[in-house]
Simulated scan of single mutants.
Amino acid sequence: MRAAYASAFDADNPLAALTVGDRPEPTRPEPDWVTVQVRASSLNHHDLWSLRGVGLSGDQLPMILGCDAVGTDPDGNEVVIYPVVPTPGDPRGVSILSEHFPGTFAERVAVPRMNLLPLPTGLSATDAACLPTAWLTAWRMLTTKGRVADGESVLVQGAGGGVATAAVALGVALGKRVYATSRDAAKRERITELGATAVEPGARLPERVDVVIETVGAATFDHSLKSAAPMARIVVSGATAGHEPKVNLRRVFAMQLEILGTSMGTPDELTELLAFCAEHEVRPVVDSVVPFSRIEDGFARLASGDVFGKVVIDHTA
């Protein structure tokens, strides 16, 4: 079957480590695993990090990439794949598809049957393929970890990428006052179109916020601290611009701030997210849809840094 996979590692030019070609049909490591025919998938920065060699070792190559997917199960049902699978050999006890088990950038993928969730009526395969990683992470950051409540406000750092853009859209849909930063004027305009207040990085906000969505890291963390209201929650799920920020601990304890780490979410949270998007007609922000035959173009688009929202791969084209 055709698949897109990491055939090597290249820290400086990850696209050079990407290969598209034939791979064996998926195997089922346990009896409760099933094979899903993939209809749509979406790219995440996790895929680029894998090509750089982060989270993978040489003896795992070649590794089919991809975390997110919507497809058809053996019974003909349209399903959304929850990408976190039990992994006894991993210190976490779990892993994401494409870390230990082949991912979703293929014609077919094997997953535990319990990882299949029904595709809700009203959500297209393109929409739903955006949700299991970036949008699920944003949902968990806002709700479970951020505990955003009525009347509270949210700051999203570095809107444009998948998680941050999802946090903007979901925060607005939840009825919160949302501020979002971006260095790019065009992206700030897009943020405004989503219903949030767009500001330049480091700008003073009209108010201190109750929840900060932080995926940038060192470049924005001081601004996140200074923008936080007393008792605020700063939720971190990434560090694309440095993972070792300077932290003013006096501000942390004086303002009684919470700094919370998170990644992904649970199957129940993905079920909640799918239902919320279907019920409230929330649709993911899609940067572009690329046919699987041109998946390299999708990777190049993500690597360029010019994306606003998700890059979706159409496996039927």
Rank of each mutant, 00 (worst) to 15 (best):
H100K: 14
P102V: 04
Y5W: 05
L119M: 01
K310F: 01
Q157E: 06
S124Y: 07
H46V: 14
V36K: 01
A166E: 08
A241L: 09
K246H: 06
P132N: 08
T72R: 05
S7R: 12
T215L: 13
A166L: 11
G202Q: 05
T144V: 10
D127V: 08
E258F: 12
D12F: 04
A203N: 04
S95T: 15
P230N: 12
V85I: 15
T27I: 12
G151A: 07
A317K: 06
T104V: 03
P83E: 09
G71C: 02
R52M: 15
L270T: 09
P120A: 00
E207A: 08
G195P: 05
G89C: 02
D268I: 07
I81N: 10
M114T: 14
W139D: 09
T165A: 08
L205H: 10
D184Q: 10
R113F: 04
A169S: 14
P83L: 07
T87R: 04
S124M: 09
L142Y: 03
G160A: 09
V168K: 07
A125V: 12
E189W: 00
I259A: 09
V80E: 00
G76V: 04
T220S: 15
M141S: 13
D306L: 11
D10S: 13
T133G: 00
G76S: 02
V199P: 03
S41N: 03
W33E: 05
V94R: 12
E152C: 08
F308E: 05
G175Q: 12
D68Q: 01
R183Y: 02
C277I: 00
A17G: 13
R177S: 07
F292D: 00
A40Y: 04
L194Q: 13
L136V: 06
A106L: 02
G309N: 02
A125D: 14
P132L: 05
V79R: 06
A228G: 12
D210M: 09
I313H: 00
R108D: 03
A134K: 07
E296C: 01
E193A: 15
V94M: 08
A218T: 14
A180C: 06
L170G: 10
M231T: 12
D47P: 03
D12A: 14
P88T: 10
V85H: 06
L273A: 09
M255H: 10
V209I: 07
P29A: 11
G146W: 08
H243F: 14
V212D: 12
A167P: 09
G175D: 13
L249N: 02
E296H: 11
L225R: 06
D287V: 03
L170K: 06
F9Q: 07
G161S: 10
V148F: 03
V70Y: 04
D297T: 08
E272V: 08
V94K: 11
G309Y: 01
E193G: 13
L205A: 10
V172G: 10
V154I: 15
G261I: 02
A125T: 13
D10T: 08
L273G: 06
A180Q: 03
E269H: 03
V156D: 09
S237I: 04
V209Q: 07
P86K: 02
P201H: 10
G93C: 05
R147W: 01
P62G: 03
A3M: 02
H315N: 01
G217D: 13
V247S: 06
Q60M: 15
T262W: 07
V109M: 03
G265K: 10
A110D: 08
Y179Q: 10
P291F: 03
V235W: 10
N248K: 14
L56M: 08
S288V: 11
